[in-house]
Design a protein around this nucleic acid. Structure first.
Lengths: 189, 189
DNA sequence: TGAACAAACTAACACTTGTTAGTTTGTGTA
DNA sequence: TACACAAACTAACAAGTGTTAGTTTGTTCA
């Protein structure tokens, strides 16, 4: 019985516009127009344009952080953990493609919260890398450069937001399984 | 004995700024300041801000198009062609990380040239996909969803511009080989 | 020496930007 | 009926935007 507030509607609309044109190219008048109101009226609900960006990005960043912490804390093989990471990205990306677009493309326009965002991102990447390194030590993963492995997987996962909206025929499970297979087992016969 | 013109210096500087903050967030006064001159002076060399973006993006897009056409026209296995595509991305990305950032993130701000850019991009992706599909038909590539395969590879390759500047210790050959191995053979033992 | 030219400058323009202040409108509740 | 409140409005602001016009400066070379 969640009531969607006007503020949440504005933030959601903003995320959509930010995905299309980027934060800097979207004006408060653009946003107001998409809401069917005047720009000044937005300020009855939000404090500033900055605050909208902050709300969008920090929420997604914290989702990733909490998901990753749970995976790190769990007891399972490192390959299984990587599959869970794929599922985490597919899940968050499916529910919030617009928010992830802002996180990927407009994080540098965070002002007050930039430092906090970078802290979360660094922690996330360090955890990701540690799973790969432990997988190599445990002979679960091929002894390639772990940073190339992480870069390759993370690039794919971070781009899901671009691709999911075009392929709504595929459900999340199929996508997560297909991706895991390709990322882990490769494509050759 | 190539003479670097003032116009080329401006475009190169602009590409660097666009990578850091995005096209819309960079003002002509920012650009002028980075060049050590006044904003109005820029217009002795360039026609408009738009023209700078166009010059940056179209050059890179045509590089990719020509490289892909050569690969498509060549006689070799489809797996070899995919390795050539990886090399193409590593090569272009190494030489022009800033230009690729603009292509990836600011293509939607192309105005006159937007249609042309999209035509090149669609052709590129269609060619990429056809290599994968032919590889599957020829039993060189595992029979997974070809679009997931392309998405996964292309996401990684398009993100190289973010990663190459951080890893200048790795040379291009090592990077291309490492990437090809991971993308094609996967990471499991 | 003087013409040609590249490349900078100052000053200004019309417009757009995010934001504030104060006011009006409609709806549900005491 | 009267009040509170959410949510819209009009009007305006100071600062910043891309760009133009006209001018100055210094170097090259016939």
């Amino acid at each position: 019985m969640k009531k969607v507030t006007r503020k949440e509607e504005i933030i959601k609309t903003a995320a959509k516009l930010f995905k299309e044109k980027g934060y800097s190219a979207v004006t408060m008048r653009d946003l107001a127009s998409a809401m069917g109101i005047k720009a000044a009226s937005l300020y009855n609900h939000i404090n500033s344009k900055q605050d909208i960006l902050k709300a969008i990005i920090i929420e997604v960043a914290e989702d990733f952080t909490h998901g990753m912490r749970a995976i790190i804390a769990s007891e399972q093989s490192n390959i299984s953990k990587l599959k869970k990471v794929v599922e985490l990205h597919v899940s968050i990306s499916s529910n919030n493609t617009n928010g992830i677009a802002a996180l990927n493309n407009d994080w540098m326009h965070l002002e007050d919260q930039l430092e906090y965002y970078l802290k979360l991102r660094n922690e996330y990447e360090a955890n990701f890398l540690s799973i790969i390194e432990q997988g190599i030590s445990a002979n679960e993963i091929k002894n390639s450069n772990p940073e190339i492995i992480m870069f390759s997987m993370l690039s794919t996962l971070r781009s899901l937001y671009l691709w999911i909206p075009k392929k709504d025929t595929l459900n999340s499970n199929e996508l997560a399984n297909g991706l895991s297979e390709i990322l882990i087992e490769g494509i050759n016969i």
